[in-house]
Design a protein around this nucleic acid. Structure first.
Lengths: 330, 330
DNA sequence: ATGAAAGCGCTAACAC
DNA sequence: GTGTTAGCGCTTTCAT
């Protein structure tokens, strides 16, 4: 394989100093425009591209952005990654994606790998964990937490979802339709989001004068299976409820799966309010009522926070409101 | 910000030569095990990570893999990217994803950026284009074409889908159910996949003694809208058919969308065979009969082809068979 | 306007 | 078993 073409290759080829080539290629004014054009032309012909490793070694920013998310199968994450990737293309950034599967160990490994590459910035959905990562792990990396907030060894900006109002809206909406036994399926109280959503649910139930029996507040480690199981319990009558409100992406998909597999009539047998808005929610059962998140906005904000110009002294928490989308499952 | 810790930092800290540190950290046998352990311990304490840029400059492989795909919204691509990302995690590879949106210009830019980073290998879904990229673009990059095959300035391995048999199976299946007017919705003949799928459809129709009117073979630039439009034409009666076979991911989703929006009764009004198997196909309308692709296998093969040990002299085309999954839409 | 030297972090190739 | 040197590609600093 022919050696790759460098500024020295070009310099030799043209019989000049590699310094002149360097200057020409970075459009320095200190080169005769004639020489510059000659050099640029030759560089293009030879297929020259600058070596990012050499740049990085000199301490220039690598323009590498790391994305740590649980997976790409969940449509919310996929859409977020998609939006972010487009923004990165447009801003000449390299996006490196690591799937953590919500595992703190994998997360640690991913961060180490990113650090090797002199990654400039990271956007992460932190894995649930009791341990706090060592501060070393983030050395030199501008970090933004996305969706969730974990205790980090330093202050980091974060982007969070403000969905309490949508959950209250969901309860009001169902109550207005005459539902009394509304069941909430959400993440457990170890997650701050879990606590807040649950609190919003309970508050709204009380506002509507509806009793909140324990069975109506189902929380656990959020997962597809958890959603499916609890929905099945409702359909089988083990849990007495006429409506479901989901408080998590996977939970929502799981609960929906169970309803569809059981051939439940929605909303007659069971009214259903999902969480997140995968494309097919619009289609199935005439449309699933759901809590939708402003994905593009979130991605734009994430990138915004990474740009150095945006350095602020205090750590900021950026909240974005969700929206209850009414369709035909309620 | 404190300077980042290097082997020299550690060497100074320990009052030894940076070379000994280097050896210790790469487990060279030429270090007293006592010294080695001391060094490794201190390195861990200081949060040392090796600098990939320095490595790259010395000519070591970067272990960076580029993935060029149209988008992450299409569930097939998302699942492929997910599977590949997991494999990369497990093989200590860095995965850089670029979205091309099927645009040759974006593709070119992405390749250039990857070349800057000394990317070792690329897996790409080539954008449809009449022009052939310059050979420079791929210099030093092991390339694998995925799903589609474009003419490249050199020989590259490729991974393709062998779906002709599934399309024939689809026709047989519908014919056995008594359908005579089966409409095929696929990509146009400029795509090799388009030609092959169409040929398979026609061949199978003839095998079953079914007439192939022009209107029953609908091909165009494949897209969601194309699928939606043609499906609508069928539902409205503009195209006279009792069954649809889709020959593309986006087409399939578009056609399905149109059917669901129109509240078509499936399979009574219209039998439907999709392409690809997004998770929700299992749910809606009691399950959509579809042509499913072995995604995990494809990803594994893609990575396999990138490993250097796998160097073969001749370019290979690796074909993977799809499977017709029978559900309740037919 | 152009060139020479130095150094970023790392390791192969040599000393010793 | 350990230390010294040189060089990967690039740009900043200092000549000329």
């Amino acid at each position: 394989m022919a050696r790759s073409v460098t500024i020295k290759t070009i310099a030799q080829d043209l019989g000049i100093s590699h310094m002149t080539v360097s200057r020409a290629l970075s459009n320095s004014p200190n080169v005769r425009s004639e020489t510059r054009e000659l050099i640029q032309k030759r560089a293009a012909e030879l297929g020259y591209v600058r070596n990012a490793a050499a740049s990085a070694m000199r301490g220039d920013t690598t323009r590498i952005v790391g994305l740590l998310i649980p997976n790409l199968v969940n449509e919310f994450y996929a859409r977020f990654a998609n939006a972010l990737a487009i923004l990165c293309e447009d801003n000449d950034l390299h996006l490196i994606t690591h799937l953590t599967n919500d595992d703190a160990g994998r997360e640690r490994l991913a961060l180490m790998k990113l650090r090797e590459l002199q990654t400039s910035a990271v956007i992460m959905v932190p894995a649930p964990s009791v341990e706090t990562h060592s501060a070393h792990l983030f050395h030199g990396i501008k970090t933004v937490q996305f969706i969730r907030t974990q205790k980090l060894p330093f202050d980091a900006d974060s982007i969070v979802i403000e969905d309490a109002q949508s959950i209250k809206d969901a309860v009001h909406h169902l109550a207005a339709k005459g539902h009394q036994k509304i069941c909430y399926l959400g993440g457990h109280a170890l997650l701050s989001s879990g606590r807040e959503r649950k609190a919003a649910f309970i508050a709204a139930m009380e506002t509507n004068g509806l009793p909140v029996r324990d069975a109506l507040v189902q929380t656990a480690v959020p997962s597809f299976n958890m959603g499916a199981e609890r929905a099945s319990s409702i359909l089988s009558g083990d849990i007495d409820a006429s409506a479901i409100i989901c408080g998590g992406f996977e939970i929502s998909n799981g609960a929906l799966d169970a309803c569809l597999k059981a051939d439940a009539r929605i909303p007659d047998d069971l009214a259903f309010i999902g969480y997140g808005d995968p494309g097919f929610y619009r289609w199935i059962q005439g449309g699933i009522t759901t809590i939708s998140l402003p994905i593009e906005t979130l991605a734009a904000q994430a990138l915004e926070l990474l740009t150095p110009k945006n350095a602020h002294l205090s750590t900021q928490q950026h909240a974005f409101a969700t929206e209850l989308i009414l369709r035909n499952s309620t």
